[in-house]
Design a binder for these strands. Structure first.
Length: 102
RNA sequence: UGGGCUGGCCGGGCGACCGCGUCGCCGUCCUCACGGGCGGUGCCGAGGAAGGUCCGGGCUCCACAGGGCAAGGUGGUGGGUAACCCCCACCCGGGGCAACCCGCGGGACAGUGCCACAGAGAACAGACCGCCACUGCCGGCUUCGGCAGGCAGCGGUAAGGGUGAAACGGUGGAGUAAGAGCCCACCAGCGACCCGGGCAACCGGAUCGGCUCGGCAAACCCCACCUGGAGCAAGGUCAAGAAGUCCCGUGCCUGCACGGGACGCGCGCACGUUCGAGGGCUGCUCGCCCGAGUGCGCGGGUAGACCGCUGGAGACUGUCGGUAACGGCAGCCGUAGAUGGAUGGUCGCCCCCCGGCUCGCCGGGGACAGAACCCGGCCUACAGGCCAGCCCAUUCG
């Protein structure tokens, strides 16, 4: 999977954005038919919800699933998501307007 | 016992925990209130196709002087239904020993058009081989009377061969140089009329006639019948206000700041105000009607909340009517309603399939597929399995 993280910069920080982090998912038709795509989205939604604590309140995260996600188990998706988040340095939370691709 | 045909049904089961969504309840915080935030708790939470979005309807809004021309759909008959391109029964044609299956099943003397390849010839057809008569030439045999034959020309002939999906009916007789529905009998087919059966499609039968007529309408077309437009982002309420108003979100300073949205507004350009822009009659046109604003761009950025929103032509059981589809009556059942869109994860026991073996365990797997206003259908996808009826063959009694 590919993960994008947008952290609002200082000049935009005064804007009154919602106080909770926001996460979006992109699952294209390359992943599979509707049933498979929805299953992947549901799994990612639950996984991401458990990890919102590690995001800062104004972060915006986009998770894009690649075709291999169709065959991945729930645990495999969890490991992959953790790996991507670690690479973004989410724990530090000091990035400003960064987009990191894996 | 083996093979086959048809109809109906199921679509893993039970339980535990964490998470998500609607609703109810409890607590708490904000508010005059409506209502909202947070926490807890309880019930419930995808399908037979939820799918493709192909038909038919309900519901909602718009339209509903009229004339003409198009466009689309349906297509044996009768019935069922809210309706249908659906369902049931029957008829006709075709296939199968049979149960049963298949049919896009009106019209080919209203007109136009097409029939590949093969074949001599394919639509008011056609002479390639063959058959036959005549004419000419050639030789042969001869008991000199003739006899059989070859080649060429011209004509007759649809009986035979051959081609084809299809060659202008079949069998027999009469007839002829040879032949032909040319003529005759019967059969098939066509037409007319009559009798009987059926609601009807149609079926059975009798008489007569003229003597024979290809297929394709999912080619155009003709005939009969049917069809107003858009769709829940339909549509409605809160809902007032006049250069603002209203709504939503976040923050806390609790009525202000910031961000966003709808309606309205402003500016610019273009075309217009009886010399008529634009719009309506929802395919077009004639005609009729409305009519002073309309269109585009920019400020300025694509969904304020709620209702509609799930109980309906409902499912099941029994009974009555009907061959059936279906209908009447009675009883009984009832719980998905998201709105960037909830249904995900872990585990235990059992079930089914595959593999292994130390025969009881181990390992792997469980189809097609995800609600979005709601119904009735059609079509398509589907691991595995269950039930009922019927047919054929064989064996035994």
């Amino acid at each position: 999977m590919v993960v994008h993280l947008l952290v609002p910069s200082a000049d935009r920080a005064h804007l009154s954005l919602p106080q909770a982090p926001r996460v979006g998912f992109v699952v294209s038709k390359a992943v599979g038919p509707a049933v498979v795509r929805n299953l992947v989205k549901r799994r990612l939604r639950h996984l991401a919800r458990e990890r919102t604590a590690s995001l800062s309140p104004r972060d915006m995260l986009v998770v894009r699933a690649l075709p291999a996600a169709a065959d991945a188990s729930y645990d495999e998706l969890a490991r992959e998501l953790d790996r991507c988040l670690a690479k973004l340095g989410v724990a530090a939370g000091n990035a400003v307007d960064v987009e990191v691709l894996r």
